[in-house]
Computed example of a mutant assay.
Amino acid sequence: MDTFLLLLQGNPPETSVPWRHRAGGIVTAVLLLLGLALATSLLAVTLLYLRAQSKLEAVEEAVQKLQVSLQPDDASDASAKGSDTLQLLDEAQAGVQLLKAQLGNVSAAYGEIQIRLDNVSAARAAVQGRYSDVLTKLSRGWRFYSGNLYYFSQERKSWDEAEQFCVSQDSHLTSVSSQAEKEFLSNETKGQAHWIGLTDRETEGSWRWADGTEYRADASRGFWSENQPDNWDQGIGGREDCVHIHSINRNLWNDANCTQPFRWICKQAHGPAGL
């Protein structure tokens, strides 16, 4: 299966994909074992509850019989039975109350374990759903790198249309978190200009990533082409408020008019924030 997934990604065997799926299998197995352990605990508590319930019923029945036997036939009979027997009845009733309290504790433990078991089942389903989504995206040509999934389009759209497509795939136009990620993106674009998720359309000069991560100007200064961004007015309506990887200039960044059609890169992020 790992080899098949690698072929789908177009990456060599040394990529992180096999580790990712092994990790997913380990997490699923741990959740399964935890679920089995909780199910076993739930069964044990259930048996304890039933045993306590049975004991309580037996004690209550004995108390009822004692109460009946203590009903006096006449005044002399009541005096004969005396205070010692009445004290025994009080102790038996106290025992019943203690058993009821213990039964309540067992019932509370049962409910707590049931909640934990439900949580484990939900977590297991979430993990299975997540890795199912990863496998589905890989089979559709997405790339896997450093814990994130990337989609490199073949068609061209405006920046807004590209972002809409990414959102429809539970992702956003890509942010960039490191020099290594920047190089990965540059290698995968194969000499074609691609939109990334950086824009200053809301406030000129105030750049932000489409996925909501913080833009850090100092860390990303070396990623721009020379004299960029320049917000050049190309005379086609509006200025340059969206960023693409500039294939002509060593795959560095360039601001461009958001309406221009370029290929694009989506990122389903699970890693650190962008630059």
Rank of each mutant, 00 (worst) to 15 (best):
133 D>T: 13
133 D>I: 11
133 D>N: 15
134 V>K: 06
135 L>A: 14
137 K>S: 08
137 K>R: 15
138 L>T: 07
138 L>V: 13
139 S>T: 14
141 G>C: 12
141 G>T: 12
142 W>H: 03
142 W>S: 01
143 R>N: 09
146 S>A: 15
148 N>M: 06
151 Y>G: 06
154 Q>C: 10
155 E>N: 15
156 R>G: 05
156 R>F: 07
156 R>V: 09
158 S>R: 03
159 W>M: 04
162 A>L: 04
162 A>N: 02
166 C>Q: 03
166 C>I: 05
168 S>D: 10
168 S>L: 06
169 Q>C: 10
169 Q>E: 14
169 Q>K: 15
169 Q>W: 06
169 Q>D: 11
170 D>R: 15
170 D>T: 15
170 D>A: 14
171 S>T: 10
172 H>T: 01
172 H>D: 09
173 L>W: 00
175 S>W: 02
176 V>A: 02
176 V>E: 00
177 S>P: 00
177 S>L: 02
178 S>I: 02
178 S>G: 00
179 Q>I: 02
179 Q>L: 11
179 Q>P: 06
179 Q>Y: 03
180 A>P: 00
181 E>D: 08
182 K>R: 14
182 K>E: 05
182 K>T: 02
182 K>C: 06
183 E>D: 12
184 F>L: 01
185 L>Y: 07
186 S>D: 14
186 S>W: 03
186 S>P: 07
186 S>Q: 15
186 S>G: 13
187 N>E: 11
187 N>P: 07
188 E>M: 15
189 T>P: 10
189 T>S: 15
189 T>Q: 11
190 K>T: 09
192 Q>Y: 12
192 Q>W: 11
193 A>N: 15
193 A>R: 03
193 A>W: 08
195 W>P: 01
196 I>C: 05
198 L>D: 01
198 L>I: 03
198 L>E: 00
199 T>F: 01
201 R>Y: 12
204 E>S: 11
204 E>H: 08
206 S>F: 10
206 S>V: 13
